[in-house]
């Protein structure tokens, strides 16, 4: 029984992968052709046309030229013909059951169970409930409010900002007056950014993330300070730092950043903000 369960789990794991669409598509077509030969005519026309369009080079060229994430265009094939074929196959199978309610209910439950376990339900997907990676967080909003208030006080219309990834990533949605020195796409589109910006990003990635494996908080702050010191050519009006005190460290970033020419602006529960003098 345990072996069977392990095998089942393995099968479901493979069904979760992309290739399942090929399998489901072919199974769907086979079922349709075998059981309802007459009724597959329209579906075959649709499947062929959809496949042809989705694998067509002009489509690929057009998409790659004008659309973001076009490298994933081939996945359209999965949803457009495969989804329809599988759903139609299920419908015709359901009809074959006749009027027996018990069999219909069992069939529907079986299909639901299979699709549920083989799929990725929206609410079980990773990060769906994680406040740190979704929506504008309360802490981030507080940081932007503090920054904008200080900018207004200083008479600044726009300001360059460097801070934790989440703070930088959402800043442009909150206000266009905030200008992060690199975008949230730096991890995937590195070529768009200068070497200095990439170094700063790597510096942040290595040392300053709140969940960094490096436990020495003093080292984190020093790494950020060092980056700012090494790349003075990059204008950075504001620095947002994960407050070491909030991480249980007694390092005093105010002392360090004042020596780098930054003034303490304020802090939230998790972050400290500094402005270049």
């Amino acid at each position: 029984m345990a072996e069977f369960w392990e095998q089942m789990k393995l099968t479901l794991y493979f069904m979760r992968l992309e290739d399942k669409y090929w399998g489901l598509f072919l199974i769907g077509l086979f079922v349709l052709f075998y059981l309802r030969r007459k009724e597959t005519k329209g579906l075959l026309i649709f499947a062929c046309a959809a496949s042809l369009v989705c694998i067509c080079p002009p489509t690929a060229y057009g998409l790659s030229k004008f659309l973001p994430a076009a490298d994933e265009y081939y996945r359209l094939w999965h949803i457009v013909p495969a989804g329809v074929v599988v759903c139609v196959a299920l419908t015709l199978l359901f009809e074959l059951l006749g009027q027996d309610r018990k069999r219909q209910v069992l069939f529907a439950l079986g299909v639901f169970a299979l699709l549920f376990f083989a799929g990725e339900f929206a609410y079980t997907s990773q990060d769906a409930w994680n406040d740190d990676t979704t929506h504008l967080g309360r802490e981030e909003t507080a940081v932007y409010e503090l920054l904008l208030a200080d900018m207004q006080k200083q008479g600044m219309e726009t300001a360059y900002l460097w801070g934790p990834q989440k703070v930088m990533a959402d800043s442009r949605i909150y206000s266009v007056a905030l200008r992060p020195i690199y975008g949230k796409d730096i991890a995937s589109e590195e070529s768009d950014y200068s070497n200095e910006q990439k170094s700063m990003y790597q510096g942040y990635e290595t040392y300053a993330a709140p969940d960094s494996p490096i436990d020495n908080k003093e080292e984190q702050v020093m790494a950020i300070a060092n980056c700012l010191n090494v790349f003075p050519e990059i204008t950075c009006d504001y620095v947002v730092l994960v407050n070491p005190a909030a991480q249980g460290s007694d390092v005093d970033p105010v002392w360090i950043f004042e020596r780098l020419g930054y003034a303490y602006v304020g802090e939230t529960e998790t972050f400290q903000i500094f402005r270049r003098l």
Binding site: R75, L76, H78, I79, V86, C87, L90, G119
Partner: peptide, 25 residues
């Protein structure tokens, strides 16, 4: 037939089958 088909389509989408790892996600 259409209602049954749409019901299966909804389950398909809801469970992330017509969606995971592709644009319809």
């Amino acid at each position: 037939r259409l209602l049954i088909y749409m019901a299966f389509f909804t389950i398909f989408t809801l469970c992330g089958n017509g969606a995971y790892m592709n644009p319809s996600y």
